[in-house]
Nucleic acid binder design. Structure first.
Length: 460
DNA sequence: GCATGATCATGC
DNA sequence: GCATGATCATGC
């Protein structure tokens, strides 16, 4: 044994030797064929570097010191910056056990409160033995985050206790998510208060939270502005209600009046005007990110309401790539991720002077049944792309498509989202009618009437 | 007036 | 140069 498994310092210094190396560098050509798939790197690491058999017991991986070993991929984004490639998946949620547990003594806390994190750079089509290990971090959940994670855990527990384990969603919570886990078509389990089978889920740290951990490890976390200098308030109140309370003094004020009140000269024509205004009201400096929002992967959406409280526009999402659509399963899809996340909506409405007036703010995430409707839009679109069955009719400059429109179901639809009609992505199957190998970029949109009925008008 | 296709503006 | 959030334009 090259480290003392009863001594935390020994474990960490042994782990630190991984930095800048690959497993092949350190362990040589091992019997790598014994493992495969997504968890391969982690299994190789445990067996050949730390010399213990990969397991799925309830105890932490180093039980004597209560440390859990986790490896997780990084990816490069613009400017060669390294960020988390995905959420960090922790232990499976046992629906039967969680309902009778207390957070402080829960199996979640026992296993996951102290993590030894191994970050490696993921590269497609490369053997897991050759991933470059970039960072090793020792992470204990800090008290101010633990308060929020506890609220998240309680929320997951109460859903299960209500017999709604099958309706759990990652968007329900802030830092700690309940993510699906287990293969194509999903892995289903029973739950204590309902006959309905629920997808197997695991606790996970949101991608945004993991990026925060990375920033702390690298001492580069000064781009954040915090909502709470003192998180004790969260012992009595949810984040949602604290944030909503901060908007109360500004409700029914016009944008102009709000700017006067916060004594700021933001340019109302700037693209990020509403995002900046939101930060000002929340007391976060304009150039900083809202720490709690970033860590929780919360997307801010501002909506302008017209007559009848109907949003002036549908809400767009990023354009999707046609080939990616075919590659992905629903549970791992970009589209599901985008619709499942938590949103913070800021609603403005035009008054008689044609000024925008702040009417309401709301945290929201899509209910399970509606996410199923988005899935139907997704499968229909995927089917059409697969068949090359996109263009219905060419009418002068306009082309009508078979893509699901606003009438397909009440939730979401597909529309163009491009610079112009010549701004395209390649098609995996050439279009039957036009023979074209590429097509104008399209994206998913949330129907404006759905936004009114399901979000703006719905009670807290 | 609404649904749907097309495009703009900004920032990285 | 492109991704993204936002908005315009047209025809039924």
């Amino acid at each position: 044994m090259q480290y003392n498994s009863a001594d935390i310092k020994s474990i960490i210094s042994y782990a630190k030797k991984l930095e800048g190396k690959t497993l092949r560098n350190l362990c040589g050509d091992v019997l790598e064929n014994s493992y495969s798939g997504k968890g391969k790197f982690g299994q190789l690491l445990e067996k050949f570097y730390f010399n213990y058999e990969p397991n799925s017991v309830a105890d932490a991986d180093f039980p004597e010191v209560g440390v859990e070993l986790k490896s997780t991929p990084l990816k490069k984004i613009k400017g060669d910056k390294l960020v988390a490639k995905e959420r960090l998946v922790l232990s499976i949620i046992n629906y039967f056990e969680i309902v009778s547990q207390d957070f402080d003594t829960s199996s979640f806390i026992k296993k996951n409160s102290h993590l030894l994190l191994i970050f490696y750079l993921f590269e497609k089509d490369i053997n897991a033995l050759d991933y470059l290990i970039k960072m090793v971090g020792d992470w204990k959940i800090p008290p101010q985050d633990l308060i929020i994670i506890k609220q998240d855990w309680e929320r997951i527990k109460s859903q299960v206790a209500k017999g709604k384990a099958h309706e759990l969603s990652e968007g329900d919570t802030f830092y700690l998510g309940a993510c699906t886990k287990g293969g194509k078509g999903g892995n289903y389990r029973g739950q204590p208060e309902s006959e309905i089978l629920a997808k197997q889920r695991a606790f996970s740290l949101k991608q945004g939270y993991l990026n925060h951990i990375i920033a702390v490890i690298n001492n580069s976390n000064d781009d954040y502005g915090r909502l709470f200098t003192n998180t004790n308030i969260l012992k009595e109140q949810s984040i949602e209600s604290v944030v909503s309370d901060r908007f109360i003094p500004y409700l029914n004020m016009s944008v102009f009046q709000i700017l006067q009140k916060v004594e700021n000269k933001l340019n109302p024509n700037a693209k990020n005007f509403y995002a900046s205004l939101t930060k000002l009201i929340l007391g976060v400096q304009d150039e900083k990110e809202i720490e709690e929002f970033t860590k929780a992967n919360i997307a801010i959406k501002t909506v302008r309401l017209g007559d009848g409280d109907i949003p002036k526009e549908n809400i767009s999402f990023p354009a999707f790539k046609y080939d990616e659509l075919l590659d992905e399963d629903w549970d791992e899809s970009t589209i599901k991720e985008q619709f499942e996340q938590k949103f913070f909506f800021v609603f403005f409405k035009y008054n008689h002077q044609n000024e925008l007036v702040l009417k309401r703010v709301k945290f929201w995430n899509m209910p399970y049944n509606d996410l199923e409707s988005v899935k139907m839009v997704w499968s229909k679109t995927k089917e059409l792309v697969e068949q090359g069955n996109i263009v219905k009719e060419v009418k002068g400059k306009k082309r009508l498509t078979y893509f699901p429109s606003t009438k397909f179901n009440g939730v979401a639809h597909i529309r163009p989202h491009a610079q112009n009609s010549k701004d395209t992505y390649p098609l995996p199957t050439a279009d039957k009618l036009t023979g074209s190998q590429e097509y104008t970029k399209h994206s998913f949109w949330l129907n404006n009437k759905y936004v009114r009925n399901a979000i703006y008008l719905s009670p807290e």
